[in-house]
Design a protein around this nucleic acid. Structure first.
Lengths: 118, 118
DNA sequence: CGGGATACTTACCAAAATGTAGGCACTTCC
DNA sequence: GGAAGTGCCTACATTTTGGTAAGTATCCCG
């Protein structure tokens, strides 16, 4: 399909916009949120409980960034006790796959890492 | 082999040591260094030129962290104009594969990301 | 012999990331 | 009525990250 960028995206180039996306995706909490949402839609406080150690502030901020990149979809139900849920978009699901591949590999090889440190 | 951890590594848990490894691997410069070294051994200044926008300070720091995690191997040749090269260890190569899968996907889908932002 | 390259380190400083604490508006549960 | 839960936001403080500049020792190039 078309795709005539005039330039090839390259993360090794400082000016490439892909750098920003990379930064968002690989941010401390970005990775974990993607991972948590891979299992299904979650609401704010459930997400907060799922992702160990995240503060409300950082969770809210991270969610906004990821939503801005089109990776997650935020749905607010106008009911009295606020009810909002977050889910991955198709794009987000693809991203989550790659992220999960990385984190899964880390978990599997954790002994190897712990071993290198005496 | 054996593998009776007594606990399952889980990045979603705040106390899990895998969190540290994840942080190193997904750090701004960590990702890019892994990527750059995937193509082959490089020496310090070549690496610096390869990774756009990195400062000497951050490159040196990043290399030390990744070396500490056993992802890269540093080899210093004791010659008068200093000559040091950096290469991926087998563990580092596996990590680089996953990281490259993520960055490659980002580069391919960059138009989709740029599109979400009006 | 001055300038540049090599591979760093250290000191100093600015900027970004992140945590803490409190507020808001309203409901339900006890 | 009072406490807790919901989904945030804002202000303030601290921690981490990252940049700049300079120093080090030695060699090669012109």
């Amino acid at each position: 399909m078309n795709a005539e960028p005039g330039f090839a995206p390259n993360v090794l180039a400082a000016e490439c916009p892909s750098r920003q996306v990379l930064k968002h995706l690989t941010s401390q909490w970005g990775v974990l949120v993607l991972l948590a949402l891979q299992e299904g839609t979650l609401r704010f406080s459930a997400l907060r409980r799922r992702v160990g150690g995240v503060s409300e502030r950082m969770l809210a901020q991270t969610l906004q960034v990821l939503e801005g990149d089109g990776l997650i979809r935020r749905t607010a139900h106008q009911v009295v006790p606020p009810h909002v849920d977050y889910a991955l978009t198709p794009l987000g699901q693809e991203a989550a796959l790659r992220v999960a591949a990385l984190t899964g590999w880390i978990e599997e090889n954790l002994p190897a890492f712990l071993g290198t440190r005496t």
